[in-house]
């Protein structure tokens, strides 16, 4: 019984990781950009939500609604003025620029907000739980997983049923040819990163309600998210969800055996899967 409970907790944790990873998967899938600052941008979004909550006296969900367009603008500007300049065949420049951004954002937040841990307080919903047969599940973790599924459904709809999605896919497959058809890759990339930041805001909301956060936690979250994206396979959003859940279950099982092994177990699962499937479980696009 305890195992079912552990695995269930792992699946729910995986929902949070999938949410972190969805924005990353979007950007990585469309422009092969490894954004090493994504974790810190999620933490930045959490602080933006926090500021809006305290200055306007709103609840976290309302505050996130206001934060989302702000973060879209941040993402759009970041892509337009910085990242588009370094995208190319060589992966070194974008990797190093986003690494620099990660350090700048992390230490900037540290300078402004100090190292104190913060939390987004959502009231009584945090403590509520549902009894599903033999096990009890927290409402918030369940909501996180549901949100991850909703975000992925929405992104998939956008990808496969809208003109913007067609432009995304075309640019992903061949940016030059897409350009000949009247799509402006730079613009498409800016919108994609903006959208990724909206998803980052949603993940920041659930991260901040579920657990404490401080300026330094970005890189570790980024790593779990990347593991989820890579395990899932490039360009497959459902794969990203599966990847997140695998990392979540591995961490929960590891923690059940020995609390010190939680993170280690997640990393080992990643290595094990890549050993047998170097391109992930469900690769859609060619690298």
């Amino acid at each position: 019984m305890i195992w079912i409970d552990t695995i269930l907790q792992g699946v729910l944790l995986g929902g949070l990781y999938a949410l972190f990873a969805a924005g990353l998967s979007l950007v990585f899938g469309i422009m092969r950009l490894v954004n090493l600052a994504h974790g810190d941008l999620i933490v930045l979004a959490a602080f933006v939500i926090l500021i809006i909550m305290s200055s306007l006296g709103l609840g976290p969900f309302m505050a996130a609604l206001i934060a989302a367009p702000i973060m879209f603008a941040v993402g759009w500007a970041l892509q337009t003025y910085v990242l588009n300049r370094v995208l190319g065949d060589d992966i070194l420049p974008p990797l190093l620029v986003t690494f620099g951004l990660s350090v700048v954002i992390q230490n900037g937040l540290l300078e402004v907000f100090s190292a104190d841990s913060q939390k987004l307080s959502a009231g009584s919903i945090e403590a509520q739980s549902l009894t599903l047969g033999p096990v009890a599940v927290g409402v918030m973790p369940l909501l996180t997983l549901v949100m991850a599924v909703v975000v992925i459904l929405a992104l998939n709809y956008l990808f496969f049923h809208t003109a913007l999605g067609r432009a995304f896919r075309a640019t992903s497959d061949d940016a030059v040819t897409a350009g000949l058809m009247g799509v402006r890759p730079d613009n498409i990339f800016a919108i994609a990163t903006g959208l990724a930041m909206v998803v980052a805001t949603i993940s920041a909301l659930f991260l901040g309600i579920r657990a404490n956060f401080d300026p330094s936690i970005g890189p570790a979250r980024l790593l779990y998210a990347f593991e989820a994206v890579i395990i899932g396979g490039l360009g497959s959003l459902w794969g990203t969800l599966v990847g997140g859940i695998i990392i979540g279950i591995a961490q929960a099982l590891g923690a059940a055996i020995n609390p010190a092994w939680q993170i280690l177990a997640g990393h080992l699962a990643f290595v094990l899967i890549l050993l047998f499937r170097p391109r992930g479980l469900f690769p859609r696009a060619n690298d």
């Binding site: 990585f28 092969r32 490894v34 992966i91 990797l95 790593l223 990347f226 593991e227 890579i230 010190a260 993170i263 280690l264 990393h267 080992l268 990643f270 290595v271 890549l274 050993l275 170097p278 690298d287």
Partner: peptide, 28 residues
């Protein structure tokens, strides 16, 4: 042997994950 099978971006992330694994193991 592990990382060389992975291309560009995957290679970078994999080296990071392996560094974490080495750290977590030695911390034990």
């Amino acid at each position: 042997i592990f990382t060389f099978r992975l291309s560009g971006a995957y290679f970078a992330i994999a080296t990071w994950v392996l560094a974490e694994i080495v750290r977590l193991v030695l911390a034990q």
